[in-house]
């Protein structure tokens, strides 16, 4: 269960961290009801400010992916059997739209976008 961040990247560290944690949850490497390391220890392991890790955890909590329980720490929520909520769906559409638009501008057709999407899905779920 390795996490890798690139401190000199343009993407803020907390976003990199949140993205990687989401990926580990999506791939099933971290399972529901498991706890993430404490903010202090993960920050120490990565040698980054505690606020950075805290921000990533709160980002995930805001998205309802984890729950921050006093004393037990950050616990992974189980994946809802009802699928995404309307709000989550809207958010995903909002984030996908500019990316798809950008793909079209680069000259990609529907086939190509779908094939990339499906290969990314298998990359995540098959590890």
């Amino acid at each position: 269960m390795f996490i890798q961040i690139e401190p000199t990247s343009e993407i803020p560290i907390y976003t990199q961290l949140a993205n990687q944690l989401i990926e580990l949850i999506a791939s099933g490497t971290i399972k529901p009801s498991e706890a993430l390391p404490s903010v202090r220890s993960l920050a120490a392991d990565l040698g980054v400010n505690m606020h950075t890790v805290n921000k990533a955890y709160h980002e995930l909590e805001k998205k309802n992916i984890i729950e921050i329980i006093p004393k037990s720490g950050a616990v992974i929520n189980s994946i809802s059997p009802k699928g995404p909520s309307d709000m989550q769906l809207d958010l995903i559409k909002l984030h996908l739209k500019p990316l798809i638009a950008e793909s079209i501008v680069y000259g990609m057709d529907k086939e190509q976008i779908l094939s990339i999407t499906s290969s990314i899905i298998s990359e995540i779920t098959e590890g």
Partner: peptide
Amino acid sequence: LKRVRVADLTSR
């Protein structure tokens, strides 16, 4: 080379 920092979530 890409300069990265790595942590293992289970190390603790």
